[in-house]
Amino acid sequence: MNSLFDDATEEPTGGTSSRKSRLPKLGRSVKMTGLDVGATMIKVVVLERRPEGVVLREAALASTPPGVATEGVLTDGISVARALKSLWNDYSLADQRVAVAVSGERVFCQAEEASESERGDLPALARSRMAETISYPADSASSGYQEVPGGFVWVAAPAESIDWIRETVRLSAKTPTLVQAQSCALANAYSFSYQPDAQDVALLLHVGARRASLVLMRGEVPIYGRDVVINLAWPAAARSVPERVIAALDLHWDQIELRSRPAELSRILLSGGPASAPELKEAIQTRTGKPVEELDAFLRVSYSPGAGPGRVVAEHRSSLAVAAGLALQGLEEQ
């Protein structure tokens, strides 16, 4: 990963971190905690990479303390940290490193095409594309880019969001080693679990209590990702969850169709708390005409569904997708 603000640290290729190739992984067993702090629920997934594959070590959900959000944005870090600390204690989660997500309308994850000549100065190109898209000064954003076939992916989030989540996790006596956009975490969970073909286009739709995340995937590349508010833009009492999700989808449907070309959107994968509701699947399928299924971020993760964390995953698979994606990326980085 490269920062868009620190030219001195950028590698000549501008590509992904070379840590993976530098560190031998054979025989190493490492664990990573993925943490997804939502408006109503805190989700935690601990994965371990063993020589035989990725194994689920722990999965947990807890309620987000009431009153910690101001206008839908989590602001009371001390209460959240206290809840996190209780969670660590209740589940005896001793691992220090935590990967955590940020989300919101001001968090972007997007792929851009770039010709060979343009890639000569990829940092400047990524910075300019980001500045054109985000709705706040680029200097106040935390961002990064990664070279992918045919172009690059850039991610940006307000710096204060990164600071808030980092300090909150630190207050809970853990060390945040990775902060990722929620849509990228979803993309990673999908890539790891489904290992799609390079031209396969799928839409990931993560429905939360307050926001929905849309991530359009071509192969393993998130070509378009946005977070949309689904409970404040309209009077909540007047519209059901499926209606609100459809409305959010409508806002971005043109972009989704445009960016899918020349391929067709093959399916929509739902995640988040309401994802298992049949009426939501039916509503989306009726509206888009595309097959809708539930995203399983644990397809290639070994666990026993009968007991312990496996049972939590079996019951709340959809809700844990983001936390699983974070843990998977954290494992890749070690």
């Binding site: 990963m1 603000f5 935390s142 990064g144 990664q146 989030a157 956009a181 990326q329």
Partner: peptide
């Protein structure tokens, strides 16, 4: 796999507290 880490792309420098472990 997208390996971007927004902790490393922090724009400002208000790292007042040294972390127990660095980003790696």
């Amino acid at each position: 796999m997208i390996r971007i880490n927004l902790l490393k792309g922090r724009a400002g420098s208000n790292d007042s507290l040294p972390p127990a472990l660095d980003a790696s």
